[in-house]
Design a protein around this nucleic acid. Structure first.
Lengths: 217, 217
DNA sequence: TTTTTGATACCGAACGACGGTATGTAAAAG
DNA sequence: CTTTTACATACCGTCGTTCGGTATCAAAAA
């Protein structure tokens, strides 16, 4: 294979292929050879030139996965015209209202049997997303009076754990009824913390999604 | 190595060694050869006679880990003289008051970098423990009036996810302050669901444990 | 303008370690 | 005495990773 003038394209290709295979077959059941076979002529040397290990590819893949949603979180976090509670509400609204043509639904990824990838996402959610995006919003909410809590850090973690992990259909696959139950319990929980982030519009949309997701399996 | 008249002892030995190594080095970084080297003369044939794969050993190890606490859960679940809410409270009390000489503290297990084992425990917690132990208690509570919820299944999952995973120092290592924060938020959450499972005695004990755990690291 | 040089992109054979299997053997069980 | 069980051991294919090498390119030197 000829040398590529734009090596980022090669990197990007490796990540595309790896992402797909990791989702389809799981990280551990995807071999380097599998990746090579889907690279269209590139070799083992190419991979190990751009990545120092298979694990390194996993990190890059998860980074790319999470950076999308992290960008949205960062955008909302940094908005000037909303108070803390409104920002939280907007986050849930946006994450649920996002169009269905997501990668999510084209590959129908299933972390149900993908320990390494799930682990990666869990760590990123709890160690990065919670403190960097949710926590600042809660702190703002405390300042502007829209959120009351004495334990902002733990609250941020709890919210992310439930919303991003527990309610994530990629991780725990739910029937529409289960998804509905989780959503209601989540809403109740948030209300218990004085956070009113749910409304009927959201609920309706969520039910549509649950049905759609089931169909795509 | 001579043939053992009581093969259960060999099985048990393999599990002991595997458990220790899985905890010390992580499942993926523990090779079959590592296990053999710690078996005191037994060979690969012995392992593959009693277990069909490395994965199979992992399953057996996690089963043994969780069966202990599951027994306690089952015992409380089946008690006759407590209502639902009292049983929930007893569960938290018992799990926190258990003596420190647990395996937990002798090996100081750390699932922080042990995806497969964490995954195993997560699945067992959500797919087995929640529906088989917590859910029946909640159902009883609904019947006897001590618990009110329209979504018992989701509530059971949420409780287990937070209590067994999020607050588990093996999985998320906390400073004493963080452990305290989590505990308080958890209590608040439970209160939001009308569940009064915390008191000062528990809180005090938890803080002691958090300090102890930190020391043992 | 041509040549040199050094960095970068990629190739592919080879390696050691791994999980798993096939076959053998001897002790226990029946 | 026969069958089953509890192991031992040699071996296999696959895996992730390494490494010596080549081709290509841009920029500096001639």
């Amino acid at each position: 294979m000829a040398r590529n003038k734009h090596p980022e394209e090669t990197v990007s290709l490796i990540l595309d292929v790896s992402y797909r295979l990791f989702m389809e077959k799981g990280y551990e059941r995807t071999s380097i050879q599998d990746i090579i076979d889907n690279l269209g002529g590139l070799s083992k040397g190419a991979i190990y030139h751009h990545f120092k290990s298979k694990e390194d590819i996993l990190v890059a893949v998860t980074d790319r996965m999470t950076s999308q949603s992290n960008n949205i979180l960062a955008y909302i976090r940094d908005q000037k015209d909303l108070n803390g509670q409104e920002k939280l509400k907007k986050i849930f609204k946006d994450s649920i209202m996002r169009p269905v043509q997501d990668e999510i639904f084209t590959v129908a990824p299933d972390l149900h049997d993908n320990p390494r990838l799930l682990f990666s996402i869990l760590r990123e959610t709890m160690d990065e997303a919670a403190p960097n995006y949710i926590l600042p919003i809660i702190m703002q909410g405390i300042g502007d009076g829209s959120i009351q809590t004495e334990h902002p850090k733990a609250l941020a973690e709890l919210i992310m754990l439930t919303a991003n992990i527990w309610m994530n259909p990629m991780i725990f696959d739910n029937t529409p009824e289960e998804a509905y139950e989780k959503f209601m319990i989540f809403g109740q929980m948030m209300k218990g913390f004085g956070l009113d982030v749910l409304d009927d519009e959201l609920l309706k949309r969520l039910q549509e999604l649950a049905v759609l997701y089931q169909k795509n399996k």
